[in-house]
Simulated assay, not measured.
Amino acid sequence: MDPDPVEPPIPVPDVPGGDAGARGLPARGDLTLRQRAIVDASAIADIALRTGVASIVATSMVPTTLASMLHPLASRTEHDHMRFYAELASAQDPAVSFPAPTRPPRVSTRRASPVAEMIAHGRVENIRFDSSFTAVNPALRDLCSGFTRNNVVRAQHWRHSDGPHPTLCVIHGFMGSPYLANGLFLSLPWFYRSGYDVLLYTLPFHGRRAERFSPFSGYGFFSHGFAGFSEAMAQAVHDFRSLIDYLESTGVDRVALTGISLGGFTSALLAGVDDRIQAVVPNVPVVTPDRTVDEWFPANKLVALQRLVARTDRSLTEAAARFASPLNYRPLVPKERRLIITGLGDRLAPPQQAEMLWEHWDRCAFHWFPGNHLLHVSQPDYLRRMTRFLQDFMFD
């Protein structure tokens, strides 16, 4: 396999990043003047982006905040839900927190658009099947089963014509579900031409999984309170494991997983749940979303108001948040098959989040680039790093 097969479809500055050292990410003084300038400029730009994203998240949280203010019973119910997830998290057992699917999916496929095949330079199919997910919390099963559009799993599959290939699975970020945008942004033609099949997975409540009248893709992730977010993550894990079942049924025997932002968070969590994943590459991941949102204005003000009105114990919130955190579970992917990527100028998923995962993952391979959450400066550099990293596991 050619380790550097094509140039990325979207031109970005090729200012090299590097691998973390024994002590972690480089200090500011360790960067070159050019790297430092790019990190500073991209961080300022990311703060503006973060404010916009936080405003959207805050909008989706308004209904639960109002319910807490107007109906004390709603606050007590949310506290009960938090205690439920905190108790599950305390066991640190992924088999208990995330039960495996018990039946194979019945998948239907249809040919994707000519534009998708033009970008991939190969055969592309859209796949769908009914989710077999049942809410982990029995108190939420009626609510979750009523999400009719969300309970149809969707993905796009880039397949070679000569049979199944090692497959790179990709999970998008919050609100970032369009297949074509992810294919271009993440330079997936690079990997397809390297010999991988590619599968793009749609997270719950995103894209065509968004419920009718949702104001934006991803709205349902945060619009049902903390418990709703926890169940959305549980379903994200469950449905992806069903996709692995499907891939195996077609003859795929090697699956690597990467994801960006919320997808990075999900991929890191999956690495602690399913031992069939050959390699994992979280890209600009968040690992403690409860702490991250506390830094996002104006969402942090709404969260603070909700906690005040509901009299929520901060320690209970933190204990419950561990249910869906990759930091709560030991990785099942071997150390030499873990690679974390982060941007030093990222202010949506600050590099300190990736560093926490790096510590939890026994200081595995760790690559940084001098850009922010969306502007992946030196993307060609880290694509080459990913290609070299994955080659030995996926194409021996």
Score class of each variant (00 low, 15 high):
residue 5 P to N: 04
residue 7 E to W: 14
residue 11 P to L: 06
residue 12 V to T: 15
residue 16 P to A: 11
residue 16 P to V: 05
residue 17 G to Q: 02
residue 18 G to F: 09
residue 18 G to Q: 06
residue 19 D to T: 09
residue 22 A to R: 13
residue 26 P to E: 01
residue 30 D to G: 04
residue 34 R to K: 12
residue 35 Q to R: 12
residue 37 A to H: 13
residue 44 I to R: 11
residue 44 I to M: 07
residue 44 I to N: 02
residue 45 A to I: 09
residue 47 I to A: 14
residue 47 I to E: 15
residue 50 R to Q: 11
residue 51 T to A: 11
residue 54 A to M: 06
residue 62 V to A: 10
residue 64 T to M: 12
residue 65 T to H: 12
residue 72 P to D: 08
residue 75 S to C: 06
residue 76 R to L: 14
residue 76 R to D: 13
residue 78 E to D: 13
residue 78 E to I: 04
residue 79 H to C: 09
residue 81 H to G: 02
residue 82 M to I: 07
residue 85 Y to E: 05
residue 91 A to V: 01
residue 97 S to H: 03
residue 100 A to V: 08
residue 103 R to Q: 10
residue 104 P to H: 13
residue 106 R to F: 04
residue 108 S to C: 05
residue 113 S to G: 14
residue 115 V to H: 13
residue 115 V to D: 10
residue 122 G to E: 02
residue 123 R to L: 14
residue 126 N to H: 12
residue 139 A to L: 06
residue 140 L to M: 04
residue 144 C to D: 11
residue 144 C to K: 10
residue 145 S to K: 08
residue 156 Q to K: 09
residue 157 H to D: 00
residue 160 H to L: 08
residue 165 H to N: 09
residue 166 P to V: 02
residue 170 V to P: 01
residue 171 I to M: 03
residue 172 H to P: 02
residue 176 G to P: 01
residue 179 Y to K: 04
residue 179 Y to H: 12
residue 181 A to T: 14
residue 183 G to F: 07
residue 184 L to P: 03
residue 187 S to N: 09
residue 191 F to S: 02
residue 192 Y to Q: 05
residue 193 R to D: 11
residue 193 R to H: 15
residue 194 S to Q: 12
residue 199 L to E: 05
residue 202 T to S: 12
residue 202 T to R: 05
residue 207 G to S: 10
residue 210 A to H: 02
residue 210 A to W: 00
residue 213 F to C: 10
residue 215 P to V: 05
residue 219 Y to V: 00
residue 219 Y to Q: 00
residue 220 G to E: 06
residue 226 F to V: 11
residue 226 F to N: 14
residue 231 E to T: 09
residue 234 A to R: 03
residue 246 Y to R: 07
residue 253 D to A: 12
residue 266 T to W: 01
residue 273 V to Y: 07
residue 275 D to P: 09
residue 279 A to F: 02
residue 279 A to Y: 06
residue 279 A to G: 06
residue 280 V to F: 15
residue 282 P to D: 06
residue 285 P to F: 04
residue 287 V to H: 05
residue 291 R to N: 13
residue 298 P to F: 04
residue 303 V to Y: 08
residue 303 V to D: 06
residue 308 L to W: 15
residue 310 A to L: 05
residue 316 L to Y: 03
residue 318 E to H: 14
residue 324 A to E: 04
residue 328 N to I: 07
residue 330 R to M: 07
residue 332 L to K: 15
residue 338 R to T: 06
residue 342 T to Q: 02
residue 344 L to C: 00
residue 347 R to M: 15
residue 350 P to T: 07
residue 353 Q to V: 11
residue 355 E to W: 01
residue 364 C to P: 09
residue 366 F to S: 00
residue 369 F to D: 00
residue 371 G to P: 01
residue 371 G to T: 01
residue 374 L to F: 15
residue 375 L to M: 08
residue 376 H to Q: 10
residue 381 D to T: 11
residue 382 Y to H: 11
residue 385 R to K: 13
residue 387 T to F: 07
residue 390 L to P: 08
residue 395 F to A: 10
residue 396 D to S: 15
residue 396 D to R: 14
